[in-house]
Design a protein around this nucleic acid. Structure first.
Lengths: 249, 249
DNA sequence: CGAGAGTATGGCACTCAGTGCCCTGCGTAA
DNA sequence: TTACGCAGGGCACTGAGTGCCATACTCTCG
């Protein structure tokens, strides 16, 4: 053990010379932690084990990570901040589409590092404390999305309710798509899996067809009309309404 | 302190005579815990404080509650079991309506003890570890509901996705209504608040009006047609389709 | 070049949740 | 009566997380 520590200190002393030492401490801790987690599991690895392997002091671990669980989700803070920033600059467009785009930021964070994400997924599935941590993170995303919708729906009747239900639905759909991708070993297309799931939610509240995904407007042939009318409505009223909708072009 | 312990042991010794001593230990611990939580807060109350007040040994606390957080949510295990039982016996009816009824079991648990629920709500809002615990409980309810829907939707295209999104939506709506009631001090009608929120979800997926609440079928005048078609569809095809739909009566 | 301030890190001791092990006391069955 | 089972208590231990202080490195100002 003393050998490892001395070795670590020596490395740290030489530290400044390496080209990849921008955030040595944090990265070293994450790397050491995952090596140990994958071999011995999360619970049977102590913080002392991690810092010994990383060759740093135990106290430093808790300077970089508020808890042992945090080392498993090192980029969620940043992603959460990105989501907030994205939403504050997205003041128009269908609110539901905006939060779907916001949710895709999370998917992209996972997709940027498939092996790491899959390893973490497997770890999280079997360690209760990690599941709990993940729930709290997911909850923060959901609250962020709901907060945005609540502002957009301000003044609407039951706007807060709609905001919370839609945020929950988007998060559930996003996670459904993401889990599908993760269960497949991270080898498929994460964006495709998540988009398919999100489409269900967007269809549910009828925001499909007016999305701003691509810069080009969707072809008129792909446009849809959704009509809701009492069944007793006379045919001529229906035709009139459809013709009027088409004239709006 | 020794006085309290002796008192406690004396009570336990006389125990068998009282009519309300079915589960003395557990109840005593819950009562002692909440008295201390409300005065000193959750985090500044140690398990030692609780057992001292209850007059029992520290080791016994962890025989009745796996963690300090569990003492704050003493009835959720039972409620979860009731929900599972309810769902296994509910094999017909609109799936969405069934899980709404299941969610109401949770509301009723809260409503059965308004003061306790409101106290706990305030506690949970300001203690991070309790928020985390609550998230895990809510997640278990959601999983239970989703599991039920997945079975009911088995075979449908994207049934699993629909199951998870709807379960999330119902939980979000339920909690929205419940929180409204809790923020009002638990003085209003919890069932009404939750029902209003759940109605939004049931309307979203169109299970309002065909519910089995009243025996009478909805009037035909309330029936609706929802048409989805490419905007380029010729008018005559639209008319044809609508007429065909009406003929089906 | 040297003093001082700010910052990053390590070391240490402490609290507290949670666990394993064993002991005691009590009731019960043979 | 003894033997057994069980609920509870005592005790010691692990491990996460924290507060405090010492050290060392860096940057700046004179």
């Amino acid at each position: 053990m003393t050998d490892v520590r001395d070795e670590g200190r020596a490395t740290a002393a030489v530290g400044g010379s390496g080209p990849s030492d921008k955030a040595p401490m944090r990265e070293a801790l994450i790397e050491a932690a995952f090596q140990l987690f994958l071999v011995h599991g999360f619970e049977r690895t102590t913080v002392d084990d991690i810092v010994a392997r990383a060759g740093v002091g135990r106290r430093s671990f808790f300077r970089y990570f508020p808890s042992k669980e945090d080392v498993v989700f090192p980029e969620h803070e940043r992603c959460l901040a990105e989501m907030s920033a994205f939403l504050t600059t997205s003041t128009d467009g269908e609110p539901l589409d905006v939060i779907c785009d916001a949710a895709r930021l999370v998917m992209r964070m996972y997709a940027a590092n498939p092996e790491f994400s899959v390893q973490r997924y497997r770890l999280t599935r079997e360690v209760p404390s990690l599941r709990g941590y993940e729930l709290s993170v997911v909850h923060r995303y959901e609250r962020t999305l709901a907060h945005y919708l609540r502002q957009r729906y301000a003044g609407d009747h039951a706007g807060a309710l709609r905001a919370e239900v839609q945020a929950a639905a988007v998060v559930a759909a996003h996670n459904n798509g993401l889990r599908t991708w993760l269960r497949g070993g991270g080898r498929g297309d994460a964006a495709k899996a998540v988009d398919q799931s999100l489409t269900f939610v967007r269809q549910t509240w009828g925001s499909v067809g007016e999305s701003a995904e691509s810069g080009t407007a969707p072809a008129p042939e792909d446009d849809v009309i959704v009509m809701v009318a009492p069944r007793s409505t006379p045919i001529w009223r229906v035709v009139q309404k459809i013709e009027k909708t088409l004239e709006d072009d």
